[in-house]
Amino acid sequence: MPDDPHVYDLIIIGAGPAGITSAVYAARQQLDFFIITENIGGQTLWSSDVENYTGFQYVSGAELVTIFEKHLKSYNINLRENEIVEAIEKEGNIVKIRSSKGTYLAKTVIVASGKKSRKLGVPGENEYRNKGVFYCAICDGPIFKDKDVAIVGGGNSALDAAMQLVKIAKKIYIINNTNSVSGDNLLTEKILNNEKVTVLNNSNVKSIEGDAFVKKIVIEHEKEKKEIKVEGVFIEVGLIPNSEFGVILKKNEKGEIVVDEYNRTNIPGIFAAGDVTTVPEKQIIIAAGEGSKALLGAFRYLSTTK
């Protein structure tokens, strides 16, 4: 993997609504830049119904991503997909990025890497990923027709997953580590009254076990261990920002990158936008707006810094 010695004006990390909007603005400003991203669309891809993106009364997340991508690709943009940023450093006035495929230099960087599903951190979770352990009930739920499954978590996303799975699975265990599930009242009521659903409060998953595929989970409830036979485990314990690589960046207690109203981070030349930041609301339209602000900030920085 050779190092690229060229110093770009800008590198954008991420291609969700924030990164794509930054890129569209950057292309229109004719900056010398490229995008590094794991995928196109980010979390937007997983949104089933979007009804609050101006100009669209209703659009699915996947459709919106296709439209974003088409807009992006109408410019001649260097897009490096399936590439993960591992480290970001600043040397003098130059930002250095190390990825899974190489190292790159730029005068400015916009971090728009979004969020990802939080892991549970129990034995068996990584081993059985896609072999019974899933993070998206909408996508992977349908294969569990008439089978027993567990959902780990007790918030809205866990209850949403339960709503999906009651239509498919035979029996659904919700493993929640607090006193009670805490979703929207209507949703909670619907789930609790469904005869297929058993909610186990004050319970923690200790391990996920099986042979080639998941066969059971071991949970602890009031200091007692108990085995539950399930073939699918859906983990819905929230989201964490993709900010681990930004060691030099100031973050809050949630790991979100601290930005000011111009999307500047604590490091001059490094900007951040969207769900990976401390921006108060996490919405597609807000991420897109933040992406445009971050690019305008970076453009201003480029025109005033040597």
Binding site: L45, G61, V65, C139, D140, P142
Partner: peptide
């Protein structure tokens, strides 16, 4: 599955390239 966004994107990818595929809904 009908609800998986990456399945939709995979189908779109092949259709944009005019490549015929057999799509199987495992749900």
């Amino acid at each position: 599955t009908p609800t998986c966004p990456y399945c939709t994107r995979a189908k779109e990818y092949f259709s944009n390239k005019n490549i015929d595929i057999e799509y199987i809904d495992v749900a």
